[in-house]
Simulated scan of single mutants.
Amino acid sequence: MFFPRASTAPPPFDDARILLLSGPPCCGKTSLLFQFAINRAAESGRDVVFISSRGRLESNPPFLSQDVKPSMDVLHRIQIKYVEDDEGIRKYFAAFHLLDNFPAAVIVDDFAGFFLERICQQRYGNTRARDLAMVRTLALCQNAIAHANTKLGTLGSCNLLLSDVHQGDNPRSLFIYKRWISSIYTIQGDGLGSYILKNISSSQSGIKE
Rank of each mutant, 00 (worst) to 15 (best):
R5Q: 11
L19V: 08
F175T: 00
L21S: 02
R123C: 03
Q79F: 00
K208G: 07
G206A: 07
N143C: 12
I80D: 01
D14R: 11
F115R: 03
G153S: 15
V108D: 01
Q188M: 06
D73N: 05
G191E: 01
G113S: 13
N170W: 13
L192C: 11
N149M: 09
I184R: 14
E84W: 02
I18P: 14
N159W: 15
S205E: 14
K81Q: 06
A139E: 14
R123P: 03
T30S: 13
F96D: 04
F3G: 07
G125H: 08
E84G: 04
R136L: 10
Q142G: 11
L75F: 11
L21K: 04
Q121V: 14
R172T: 14
S194W: 03
F114W: 05
F63E: 08
L20A: 02
L116V: 12
Y185Q: 07
Y195L: 09
Y185R: 08
I80L: 08
T127K: 14
P10H: 00
R17Y: 15
L138A: 04
S202D: 12
Y177V: 09
Q66Y: 07
A104T: 09
S205M: 09
S65P: 05
L162Y: 03
L174A: 04
I119D: 14
F111S: 05
C158K: 01
L57C: 02
N149A: 10
G23A: 07
K198L: 02
L155F: 12
